[in-house]
Structures are given as C-alpha cells and as structure tokens.
Amino acid sequence: MKRAPAAKTRRLDDLGGLKAALRSAREEAAAQAAAERAREAESRRERELFTRTVGTVVPLRKVAPTVVPRPRPPAVAQQRRRDEEAVLAESISDEFDVETLLDTDDALSFRRPGIGVEVLRKLRRGVWALQGEIDLHGKRRDEAREALAAFLRDAAGNGVRCVRIVHGKGHGSPGREPVLKAKVKTWLVQRKEVLAFVHARAADGGHGALIVLLQPSRAGGAAAGKD
C-alpha cells in the first residue's frame, strides 16, 4: 500500500514527457511551414522583380531545322551515252574481207542482193539529191571508222536516203597508196543501212568520194531500192 504514490508519480512524468514531445513536434512543424512560406514569398518577389525588369516573356516558336541542300551530281547525258554505246556495238572491222561475201564491179560500186542494176545507174547520174555528206579526208583510220559509223547511224535515223562520203584519193598517204579509200569500201558493206554505193561524178569528187544510198527509215520508202 505504501508503493502507490511512486507509480502515480511515474505516470505523471510520462505524461509530461509526451506533452513536451508533442509541443516540440508542433513547434518544428510550425517552423518548417514558416520557412516554406518565406521561400515562396522570396520566389514570388524574384519573379515580380524579373517581370518588372524584363517584361512579359513569350515562349519562342519552334522552328523547323534548316535543311542544307546537297549539291546534285552532274547530269549524265543519257542519250549521248546510249549513242556512244550503239556506235561501239555497231563497230565495223578492218579485217572484214568484202570480196568473200559481196560482189563489186570494176568501178568498185556495190549493191546488195535484191537491189537492181538501175539503182547504180541512177546513183551515177545523180538522180537522188544529196542530203548529207561527211569528209573523212585527212583523218586517221580509227578516227575515220568511228566518224563514219556515227554519220551513217544518224543519217539513217533521220530518214536521209542519199549521202556523199569523201575519203580522198590517197595522194598524201605513205607510198601514195589509197589506204582510207579501200577501208571506207570495206566499212560500208558491213553497215546494214547501206544499200548501194558508186564512185562520185567528177563534179562531186570523182574517185575521191562515194555516193551512198541508204536504207529508208520508213516502210513506205522501201520500194525505192527495187527500181
């Protein structure tokens, strides 16, 4: 019975300690709240000061990235490339032996099978008007061969029927041998566009040139080769 006051005293002490802890927690929370209010007030003052100093801030618009144009590769002349390839594909040989395949007369004229003798007579008389010519005189052999192939292809493609090919008489060749003259004859018989050819008249170059009849590009003109 004498120990009851001591127990009561301990309970009062515990209660006092709890109250003190609660008071301390309230004071700490109040201090944190006051500090937070102070920070917000300081931030608000800084924003107001910035606005008064700088003015209203408008966000920048998003700008699409600038595309730097890349230089385009140089244009390729496709038609020219195809023409050059066609020339190579239709190249004519120096080794072709015309005598083994086609007949030539004493005047070195030529006509394909199915082309009448009258065609040669008309070529010699100049019945067909000359529509183009190429001068190979003075060119080297390879240069002359390539130039002749391109000329014949373009002429036939443009519907040209009769042309003159100047090859020279060979007086300036080594040994005065008409090398280019003989080569031109050999080259011509290998071209499918060529129907016939004869030596030119004296007024058109004589034995230094050939008058050549070409295959017409249109079906309607095919009958001309059968005169």
Results as ranks from 00 to 15, higher is better:
Arg81Phe: 03
Thr186Lys: 10
Cys162Phe: 02
Gly116Arg: 01
Ala38Cys: 13
Glu133Ser: 15
Leu136Glu: 07
Glu48Lys: 14
Pro69Cys: 04
Ala25Glu: 15
Gly205His: 05
Glu85Cys: 07
Ser24Phe: 05
Val127Phe: 06
Ala156Glu: 02
Arg82Ile: 04
Ala147Met: 00
Val198Arg: 10
Asp97Gly: 07
Asp105Tyr: 01
Glu90Arg: 14
Arg145Trp: 00
Arg121Lys: 09
Ala4Arg: 06
Glu27Gln: 11
Arg3Ala: 04
Leu102Asp: 07
Arg145Cys: 05
Asp13Ala: 12
Asp106Ser: 14
Arg141Leu: 15
Leu130Asp: 10
Arg10His: 03
Gly132Val: 08
Gly159Tyr: 01
Glu143Phe: 09
Asp154Trp: 12
Glu85Phe: 13
Arg45Lys: 12
Ser173Gly: 02
Ala4Ile: 07
Leu102Cys: 10
Gly138Phe: 07
Ala196Asn: 02
Arg141Ala: 14
Arg23Pro: 13
Arg80Gln: 03
Ile165Arg: 08
Thr51His: 05
Val67Asp: 04
Ala219Met: 01
Phe50Lys: 14
Leu108Arg: 12
Gly138His: 08
Ala4Leu: 01
Gln78Lys: 10
Leu214Trp: 03
Ser93Trp: 04
Arg201Asn: 14
Thr100Phe: 10
Ala224Pro: 06
Ala203Ser: 13
Val198Phe: 02
Ala89Gly: 13
Cys162Glu: 13
Thr53Gly: 05
Ala224Tyr: 04
Arg124Cys: 05
Arg121His: 12
Gly206Tyr: 00
Ala4Asp: 04
Leu22Ile: 04
Lys62Gln: 15
Val194Trp: 03
Pro174Glu: 08
Ala64Ser: 09
Ile211Asn: 08
Thr9His: 08
Glu118Met: 03
Leu101Ala: 11
Lys169Glu: 09
Thr51Met: 12
Ala222Val: 12
Lys8Glu: 11
Pro74Asn: 13
Val63Gly: 11
Ala20Pro: 11
Arg37Met: 06
Arg80Leu: 09
Ala20Val: 03
Ile134Val: 10
Thr66Cys: 13
Arg44Lys: 08
Arg81Tyr: 09
Gly208Asn: 01
Arg80His: 09
Ser109Asp: 14
Ala144Thr: 11
Asp103His: 06
Thr186Gln: 03
Gln78Asp: 04
Glu146Ile: 11
Pro65Val: 05
Ala149Arg: 12
Lys19Leu: 13
Pro216Val: 08
Pro113Asp: 09
Ala86Phe: 09
Ala219Cys: 09
Leu49Gln: 07
Arg37Leu: 06
Arg124Tyr: 00
Val163Ala: 08
Arg121Tyr: 07
Lys8Ile: 15
Ala86Tyr: 04
Arg161Ala: 02
Arg218Asp: 06
Leu102Ala: 08
Ala150Met: 04
Ala33Phe: 03
Pro71Gly: 01
His207Glu: 12
Ser109Thr: 08
Leu213Val: 12
Arg72Ile: 12
Gly16Gln: 15
Asn158Gly: 05
Ala21Pro: 06
Thr100Pro: 04
Ala35Tyr: 00
Phe110Asn: 02
Gly175Cys: 06
Val63Lys: 13
Val54Pro: 01
Ala224Ser: 10
Val87Thr: 12
Leu49Ala: 15
Lys2Asp: 15
